[in-house]
Amino acid sequence: MLNLLEKLCLLDGTSGNEDSVREFIIGEIKGHCDYRVDNLGNIICFKNGKKRSDKRLMLDAHMDEVGLIITAVTSDGFLKFDTVGGMDASVLAFKTVKIGDILGVISSKPIHLLSKEEQKKPQKASALYIDIGASSKEEALSLVSLGDTAIIQSDFTLMGENVKAKAIDDRIGCAVLITLLKEKSEYDYTAVFSTQEEIGTRGAKVATFALNPDFALILEATTAADIAGVSDDKSVCNLGKGPAVSFMDRATAYDRSLYNASLNSGLKVQSKRAVAGGNNAGAVHLSREGVRTLAISLPCRYIHSPSCVANVNDMTDMLALTRYMLNGILSGEIK
């Protein structure tokens, strides 16, 4: 699965621009399930199992990642941008980006030209710009168009038992889902590779309406603050302690039976210990007359930065827990 995750993370796909991720995923799942692509670009999958359960279950992982969008070009040929999805400006400066095939560098005043006061203030995204080496507005616009998206480039690097990469949020969900779809299944189920999560959980909303499930499992990555200088009560979840399941975040109060069932699975799992963040569950659990929903998340440090750090063993534990919940719900063992 690590190999698969590497390929997925190195693909560029901001919200609304998930084409290359979608194309790759379709290549992977073809022949393992039926699928269609809907009006918003979601891949809606139908997995045939040996049996049909009387429960309808939907799995979800989002394909999009946070990034940048080009909003203007200056007379000198520099590009101005906005962020697509939540990105802290402090992670942007001096990073390399790709706008399609064009390389650029997010640029800023060098430290030598800043006042002592400016050196302490957090960087503002509005003071940053992308340099592609163009010498005029005309030249820049012959290479990129307004509305093009830019993605910060970042290697996939092993660090001890952890891996560092961009877009682990939520290519890990995609990797788990692809792996499951490639396996033979006991029961029929549906799965969605969704679009536009980072700009307001929009793809999952319409996909859930279409599939009308009774249950949903949201496969995600969530913030882990188990880092130096943060006390344990604020760490949210820890790398190496298994996938995190949520009782509540800012968008969802999760189904307690599903939450308890996952904690009682006997598998490696931890609680997400904060009412923070939100994900597609917020849109999914409110679909139609309501959907019983659980989020299973990979603990991830520096989420929404180009250097997400996550634990390799947590990934296989996440796959195991997802498989367990999937079969438990569909067999009726998990009520």
């Binding site: 939540g86 802290d88 402090s90 992670v91 690097t157 660090m159 560092k164 913030t223 882990a224 603050a225 880092i227 130096a228 200088g229 943060v230 604020k234 949210v236 904060a274 923070a276 963040g277 440090r301 520096y302 989420i303 929404h304 930065s305 250097s307 750090v309």
Partner: peptide, 14 residues
């Protein structure tokens, strides 16, 4: 020589 990443403060703590 080993790779490393500077910590970014998580959003819930900023």
């Amino acid at each position: 020589t080993v790779p490393a990443v500077f910590c970014a403060t998580p959003p819930h703590l900023t």
